[in-house]
Design a protein around this nucleic acid. Structure first.
Length: 103
DNA sequence: GTCGTGACAGTAG
DNA sequence: ACTACTGCCACGA
C-alpha cells in the first residue's frame, strides 16, 4: 500500500488512540509498546500527526504533559477525571501511579 | 549515505 | 526543586 500501517508513525498513533480516557502513558512506554526505544521519535510523531490523536494522554516519565501544551492538556485531564498531583506553585503533574495505562 | 533535529529518559551536580 | 550532559531512535533534507 502507499501508506503501510506498519510505519512507526501509524503504530505510535495506534497505541495512543488505544489509551482509555482517564489513563496516560509515557513516551517511553509508547515506544516500548511498538517494540522501540525511540521515545523522542514518539514526540516527533505527536507534533506532526498528533493533531488527530489524543496526544494529551501521552506524558513524560516525570508525569509532566507535553511542553508548552500543559494548559491545553489540563482541560482534557479535568474533563476525563485523570488523577492529577498539584504543587504549591500551581504546577500539576499526572499521578502515574494511578493513571499509567499498561497494556 | 551523512547531518541536524526533537511534544524524551536517565544520571549527575 | 533546578540545570547540564549524555544516550537513544526515527525522520527529513
Amino acid at each position: 500500500m502507499a501508506t503501510p500501517p506498519d510505519d512507526f508513525i501509524s503504530r505510535a498513533l495506534d497505541v495512543v488512540e488505544s489509551i482509555p480516557p482517564g489513563s496516560v502513558m509515557t513516551y517511553g512506554d509508547v515506544a516500548a509498546a511498538i517494540g522501540s526505544r525511540a521515545a523522542r521519535a514518539v514526540g516527533q510523531v505527536m507534533s506532526h500527526y498528533g493533531s488527530d490523536a489524543s496526544w494529551w494522554r501521552v506524558v513524560r516519565a516525570s508525569g509532566h504533559p507535553a511542553i508548552h501544551h500543559e494548559q491545553r492538556a489540563l482541560e482534557h485531564y479535568r474533563a476525563e477525571g485523570t488523577p492529577l498531583t498539584w504543587s504549591r506553585d500551581g504546577v500539576f503533574r499526572v499521578n502515574l501511579s494511578q493513571a499509567r495505562h499498561t497494556p
